[in-house]
Write a protein that binds this DNA or RNA. Structure first.
Lengths: 175, 175
DNA sequence: GTCTCACTATACAGGTCTGTCTAGTACGAT
DNA sequence: ATCGTACTAGACAGACCTGTATAGTGAGAC
């Protein structure tokens, strides 16, 4: 519900009705809605990290990125697609909320994955470019309701990778 | 306030207190909060379109994109920066709201600007890639609180432009 | 002067929100 | 059998939300 309808639009009463539990039970397991949001994001993060680990077993960086964006494109084509849960949540939660720390961890994992694929440091501009690709792909695909945004971003990501391999030193920000 | 704190987090009472007007006055000028949100986005859209028109007077597409992203980078460096107001709003308003139509108009204008710069059709994959750059740049810059995301996106945008000029036919989605 | 119009301030209705509390129930361990 | 634990249903508090209604004020048109 948090993902589909948004966090603020989803009240606790609807959550417990959907889960089929009593309100006291929910508050026995989560101290507050903020904690529940953080747990919701953490569940997403766990699945995401597991998928990244699978992709890390591939030896070819081109295929890693290709499969990564292919997975995104598949998600973007589904009826339940509603963008990146972390980017969406970042708009709705406050920066000092526990959920925001999960969001930051997500972006750390994402940058780490891209850095490994590129053989670069996490703060390399090319890594940032790939993060921009990811974020823009899902945001645009959501708002425009057009999964082809993800395909366009995938092609862009591959061009970043090939540019990086052609001249692996400082390929970036001041061109 | 809608921009800084988010739309759902900003109640009508705070709006009228900040504007120094009575509630009845606000509701004389705007039928509902939804209409107020749409007007808020429309004001942003007007300024944005005006800036795009200025940029369209430049003959060199490279400079158009460079100045466009330089403006974004300037915004991203300001303390009040909070991402793209349209992308943020898209997370908080419902798809059938009047605000959402303004958001769609914004993306139409954005794609039009990129299409003119590239000399391409608005549905060209390269145009979509530039939209992805824009969206990703502002989203990542906001969440990571790092304006360098915009600089990375700017470099990426220029590479899309040069790739397009090197081989102007079908540069995109299936690479 | 008088009418009109837009404003101000404020109370209020009706709803939703989060979070707490009470009261009762099922179940396993000892 | 009794205790502890976790659950259920649901009332409730207190705050906030949007939107409306009431009552009064000031300025310009004629």
């Amino acid at each position: 519900m948090f993902y589909r309808d948004g966090i603020n639009a989803t009240g606790i009463d609807r959550v417990i009705a959907g889960a089929g539990v009593a309100k006291a039970s929910l508050y026995n397991n989560f101290a507050s809605k903020d904690e529940l949001i953080a747990a919701y994001l953490e569940a997403h993060l766990d699945r995401f990290v597991a998928r990244l680990c699978e992709l890390d077993t591939l030896t070819d960086p081109v295929e890693r990125l290709a499969r990564f964006f292919a997975g995104l494109a598949r998600s973007a084509g589904e009826a339940t697609f509603s963008g990146c849960p972390f980017a969406n949540a970042a708009v709705e939660v406050r920066p000092d909320s526990p959920a925001h720390r999960v969001i930051e961890r997500f972006y750390g994992e994402l940058a780490g994955f891209f850095a490994r694929a590129l053989g670069a440091a996490p703060d390399d501009p090319a890594v940032t470019q790939l993060v921009v690709c990811y974020d823009g792909a899902l945001s645009a695909a959501r708002i425009l309701r057009d999964p082809s945004c993800v395909a366009a971003a995938a092609a862009l990501a591959q061009s970043i990778l090939t540019a990086r391999r052609a001249r692996p030193v400082a390929p970036g920000a001041t061109n």
